[in-house]
């Protein structure tokens, strides 16, 4: 068993002939909570696609859970970037979680398999168990479209977790949530990471809500990448250099970091 969940060596990726990032060499250890950050259009989601083996590298090498990318996907839980479910979606939260377990198996389960066969019972139990882990038991039987954004996100995390993955890839899971839910979902992800030993790569827009829960940050910028513990990487000088615009890093009275002036607008004007 290798010690790294993901290892990139001099990796470069392009989309439609345009280089998104190049010469990226980083290693994400097992069981660590890493945020993937950087300006818009810098290829954060592309990095997840590469790790899943959905997008071949232009150059370099990528190892995922000790195997070439794409070969270990059964051991990866992936939460794609998404908008909320339509309110009229006539499917319960528990069904959505269940699809994470056996949604890729052809056919339909035997009627009442959950009552009559041991394997069916075990599957039902696993679904209930993972719903308890994310604290969604109270609303898992409601139609998912009628759950709040935070509740939907917890159910989707349960879907990603249901097969006991060793690596969790979350693409902007906090994007559509209010501040309170951003904090509680971040705490949940940290809890999952610690108690189940799952490595987490979380793509985020804004570092502040997740900062207290992270082990490391991985900054992607035009050209390359920079990874390390937040207190080392998140400095005014480093961020200003990465984003190409002045950024301040403040410390509040509890010693927590706050990034100010993270410039999505400015980044959008940056030449690609």
């Amino acid at each position: 068993m290798t010690t790294s969940a993901v290892r990139l060596e001099h990796a470069s990726a392009d989309r439609g002939g345009r280089v998104v990032w190049s010469d990226v060499s980083v290693e994400i250890p097992r069981g660590e909570f890493v945020a993937v950050l950087g300006p818009n259009g810098v290829g954060k989601s592309t990095l997840l696609q590469v790790v899943l083996g959905l997008l071949p590298l232009k150059a370099g090498h990528v190892d995922v859970l000790g195997r070439p990318a794409g070969r270990a996907n059964a051991r990866i839980g992936y939460l794609p970037q998404r908008r909320a479910f339509d309110p009229a979606t006539p499917v319960r939260g528990v069904d959505v979680v269940r699809l994470g377990l056996d949604g890729d198996r052809w056919g339909v389960p035997l009627p009442f398999a959950g009552r009559w066969t041991a394997a069916g019972r075990a599957r039902n139990e696993r679904v209930r168990e993972v719903i308890d882990v994310v604290g969604a038991a109270g609303y898992a039987d409601r139609p998912i479209g009628q759950c709040s954004g935070g509740e939907q996100q917890r159910l989707l995390i349960a879907q990603a977790l249901v097969r006991e993955p060793e690596l969790l890839l979350l693409d902007e899971p906090l994007d559509s949530l209010d501040v309170t839910n951003q904090a509680s979902v971040s705490a949940l992800i940290q809890h999952v990471c610690r108690s189940l030993g799952v490595a987490v790569m979380l793509v985020a827009h804004d570092v502040n809500p997740i900062l207290p829960y992270l082990d490391k940050v991985l900054y992607l910028a035009h050209g390359g990448a920079l990874m390390g513990p937040p207190e080392e990487v998140i400095t005014a000088d480093t961020l200003s250099m990465l984003y190409g615009t002045p950024i301040d890093v403040l410390h509040d009275r509890a010693g927590r970091l706050v990034v100010v002036g993270q410039p999505d607008a400015a980044a959008a004007h940056a030449p690609h």
Binding site: N73, P80, R82, V91, L99, D102, G103, D104, W106, P109
Partner: peptide, 23 residues
């Protein structure tokens, strides 16, 4: 329809997640 079963349901309500699971 029965043979398509679960992957069809998965792809219908959550296409990106289904694709990542190899559907």
């Amino acid at each position: 329809l029965a043979a398509l079963g679960r992957p069809l349901l998965f792809a219908s309500i959550d296409e990106a997640a289904a694709r990542s699971r190899g559907v």
